[in-house]
Amino acid sequence: MDVLSDVITVLRIGQPRSARVAWHAPWAQQFVSVPGSAGFQIVLEGPCWLIAPDTGPVPLAAGDIVFRPHGRGHLLADSPSTPPGAPACDPDDPQLQRYATDVVGASADTGVPATVILCGAYRLDPARAHPLLNDLPELIHLPAHLGRHPELRATVSLLATELEHRRLGTDAVVPALLDILLMHILRAWLDRNPTPETAATGWAAALNDPVTTAALQAIHRDPARPWTVATLAAEAGLSRAPFARRFATLLGQPPLTYLTWWRMTTAARLLRQSDTSVSAIAGRVGYTSEFAFANAFKRQYGIAPGRYRRSS
């Protein structure tokens, strides 16, 4: 798998949840702060405002997408002056456990224009969070622009249709579309961020840098290979020392440190989600000795692989 696909796999646990909701003015919906989650709202119809402690009031229009990757609370409302009155929403709210169309606030026959929002949440595992997540800002706002991010817009359209008109297969289609939506949101954020020549450091710069990306792709494609700084530099097309400096400058850690972290993260996922033997997992992440693997895993997680599996 490529780096971004692996990030999605590592980030999310459980089933993502989504609902299509319509509000009639005046309305204000509080979304509570939920550590270990990430949430999004997509405006399908009508205007609204996003109000959060870490940002000023943000006007939203039809087609706008907002993503809160760190689970911070915020308010959506028809106006910044409308006090919150709706029940708080969190990822475990029944409203997000069913795929439904709800009308909240005044009745639909008042003639007051509705604001229709596609909202959803992803459960994350803080113990396995990829460092890319830490680099994401508190708020990713993708304003609607005609012809911009066509794949993202197409996914939104498919998801909205599936939620509005439940059919056979919806329970399989919606989670898949939510994963695709998260992928396209991250792609859009990466695409609009600066290149390494104009940025300082971080994953946005690294994934827009062909040299660093080539090394990361090699690690993710084959974590079991006995990589050295020299062999990773060869994959990246640089000599050893310039490559090591470039990697560490952008990502804040040496190449082999990231390699070890990714191997242990992969091993932890296999221990949790499969019945593969510990010795086989050791081989899949580059260890010929189960003893050496167990020691490396314990240094990373503070617990032996077998106990980690039982506790999970």
Rank of each mutant, 00 (worst) to 15 (best):
P137R: 15
E138K: 10
L139G: 02
I140K: 07
L142Y: 08
L142D: 12
A144R: 08
R148I: 14
H149R: 06
E151Q: 07
R153Y: 00
R153K: 02
A154K: 05
A154Y: 15
T155G: 04
V156G: 04
V156M: 07
A160R: 00
A160F: 01
E164W: 01
E164L: 02
E164T: 01
R166L: 01
R166Y: 02
L168R: 11
D171W: 05
A172N: 10
V174Y: 02
P175R: 04
A176E: 02
L177F: 03
L177E: 04
L178Y: 03
L182Q: 05
M183R: 06
A188L: 11
A188T: 13
W189I: 00
D191I: 06
R192C: 06
N193I: 07
N193F: 05
N193K: 01
N193D: 11
P196E: 07
E197F: 04
E197A: 14
T198W: 15
T198A: 12
A199W: 05
A200D: 05
T201G: 07
G202H: 09
W203S: 11
W203T: 06
A204N: 11
A206C: 07
A206I: 08
L207F: 12
N208A: 15
D209M: 03
V211R: 08
V211L: 13
A214M: 03
Q217H: 06
I219A: 12
H220G: 13
R221D: 08
R221K: 12
A224P: 07
P226K: 05
T228R: 06
V229P: 01
A230N: 11
A230M: 12
L232Q: 04
L232G: 03
A233P: 14
A233I: 13
A233V: 14
E235N: 08
G237M: 07
G237L: 11
L238E: 09
S239D: 13
A241I: 03
F243Q: 09
A244T: 09
R245Y: 09
R245V: 14
R245A: 10
F247M: 03
F247V: 03
L250V: 10
L250M: 08
L251M: 12
Q253W: 05
P254T: 05
P254V: 02
P254G: 08
P255N: 12
